[in-house]
Simulated assay, not measured.
Amino acid sequence: MPKRPVDTYSAIQVGLHWLIVVLIVAAFLLSDQMQDFEDLPADAALPLHGRIGLTVFFLMILRLVIRVRRGAPPPPETDPAWQRRAAHWTHWALYALAILTPWAGGFAFYLRSETAADVHEVLKTLLLVTAALHTAAALYHQFVVKDGLLWRMNLRRS
């Protein structure tokens, strides 16, 4: 755990955040590649959707390690306590879902497991809903509260 609170995310945290966002969107757009995956030959190469998922999995592990070691800035003190708790749990849910979703997808592909594929689908839906809530909250802070919270994830900040 960090020895002192941090005011902002590090450049690597911000870069990983946006890279993972792009990769998750790409995986979602390429999800049709995985229809009837069980019909692929046993020695088939992992389709691009799966390679992106594998990349997200490892980048999320890296991101989690950095988050635990370095920390993250706290939510604004001006937010009500329920919003701070919601932000906390939403962030950790995003971490868990962005790790577990590709993990389940990998099990589905390599073990040819329909059950793992079903779990992957449920986790994917939860990930997308949670990411939409996270995005809505960030936009709320940017355009309604106008507290500059979104600036913490800007790659071009000074």
Rank of each mutant, 00 (worst) to 15 (best):
Q13T: 01
Q13K: 02
V14W: 02
V14M: 04
G15M: 10
G15V: 07
L16E: 12
H17W: 03
W18C: 03
V21G: 05
V22G: 14
V22N: 03
V22W: 06
L23Y: 06
A26H: 10
A26T: 12
A26K: 11
A26F: 09
A26D: 11
A27E: 11
A27Q: 11
F28S: 08
F28Q: 02
L29H: 05
L30D: 09
L30K: 13
S31I: 14
Q33H: 02
D36A: 13
F37L: 06
F37W: 02
E38K: 12
L40S: 06
L40P: 01
A44W: 03
A45D: 15
L48W: 04
G50K: 06
I52W: 02
G53L: 01
L54H: 11
L54Y: 11
T55I: 00
T55K: 04
V56Q: 00
F57A: 08
M60D: 04
M60S: 05
I61R: 02
I61P: 06
I61Q: 05
I61A: 10
L62G: 05
R63I: 10
V65R: 06
I66Y: 00
V68Q: 03
V68C: 02
V68I: 15
V68T: 06
R69V: 14
R69E: 12
R69Q: 14
R69M: 13
G71L: 07
G71F: 08
G71W: 08
G71I: 08
G71C: 09
G71A: 09
G71S: 09
A72F: 08
A72I: 03
P73R: 00
P76M: 03
P76T: 01
E77K: 13
T78L: 09
D79S: 12
P80T: 00
A81D: 12
A81Q: 11
W82F: 15
R84V: 03
R84Q: 10
T90Y: 03
T90I: 07
W92V: 01
A93C: 07
A93G: 14
L94I: 04
Y95M: 13
A96K: 03
A96I: 01
A96D: 00
L97I: 04
T101W: 02
P102W: 05
P102R: 06
W103T: 12
G105L: 08
G105F: 09
F107D: 14
F107L: 14
F107Q: 14
Y110I: 07
Y110V: 12
L111H: 14
E114G: 15
E114A: 15
E114C: 03
A116V: 00
A117Q: 12
A117N: 11
V119S: 07
H120L: 04
H120A: 04
H120F: 05
H120P: 01
V122P: 09
L123C: 02
L123W: 01
T125A: 15
L128C: 13
L128K: 09
A132P: 02
